[in-house]
Write a protein that binds this DNA or RNA. Structure first.
Lengths: 157, 157
DNA sequence: AGTGAAAGAACGAAAAC
DNA sequence: GTTTTCGTTCTTTCACT
């Protein structure tokens, strides 16, 4: 699907606040309410908008400890990779897991309550996964920037 | 604010889909619409719900290249740290930046269109920031897991 | 804390331009 | 693409428990 300037502006607004009414959006975009409605439905149908999520303050719900784990596998056979990835997906402390280039194979973002819970996660969950060669963890001292909002330029993609 | 079991379930639902109507939520939670409404407003007022965001498919908007940059600063004086963080916050390719423990000082999540744009970002934006000692970048080969949804247990926090 | 009722606003589909 | 219309649904307030 080709996105025009209006679609991109619309996506920008919805990234900031998806609970705005179509009426509000119609003013910002200088369109009719119906046109806004149709554009949004199309963006949903084509999978460009994947969903709408409430953003929760993690400290307020007792999940204020954020760490990154770098993981190297023992071997890189297809089965090893497959089973590692399958196990990692099950861990709900792991919000993100990427297969990356470089010294380590995977980078994980882990959210737990505190250091004690992190220790417990490492010992009883993460390192019980087979074929892990070595791990290296970094703890977050300070959150400098943390957004999910993509910067959409006005040009067509 | 103390969260009870119902609040935690409500937050779980809203993390999954914040566009559900209060009526739908009232069925799931076995509460009246008004009770759901008041709980949500309270969660918003107290900052536990930080906002509502549309989740955009980054590949569909031409931002399919994801990289992580590890950064070490030259020195760790207060001013150095402050000015580095200030400059990083301005870069819209940087979605996340954390001050972390370990070998490197900062970990950045960077989203751009492709390798060419990444090269351009590194040469013309990131490494023009003063006091950077060294950087080490990893490119994402595969996204194994990527969610923003915190797992909330049913117990009070 | 909770409920139910009622007014006002928005949604969503259809019509016609 | 737009406007208008209309029935339906949701939001929000209010009186009350």
């Amino acid at each position: 699907m080709v996105l025009d300037r209006i679609d991109r502006r619309l996506l920008r607004y919805l990234q900031q606040d998806c609970k705005q009414t179509n009426k509000e959006l119609s003013h910002k975009l200088d369109l009719s309410v119906t046109a806004v409605y149709e554009r949004i439905k199309k963006l949903e149908r084509t999978g460009i908008i994947k969903g709408y999520e409430a953003h929760i303050n993690k400290d307020a719900v007792g999940l204020g400890f954020l760490a990154f784990c770098h993981i190297r596998l023992e071997k890189h056979a297809k089965e090893t990779i497959g089973s590692f990835e399958k196990e990692v997906r099950k861990l709900n402390e792991v919000l993100e897991c990427f297969h990356v280039s470089g010294e380590y194979d995977y980078l994980l973002k882990v959210v737990v309550k505190d250091m004690e819970h992190f220790r417990n996660f490492m010992v009883n969950k993460l390192t019980t996964i087979e074929h892990i060669g070595s791990t290296q963890s970094s703890f977050t001292i300070n959150e400098v920037k943390n957004t999910t909002q993509l910067t959409l330029s006005d040009d067509a993609s």
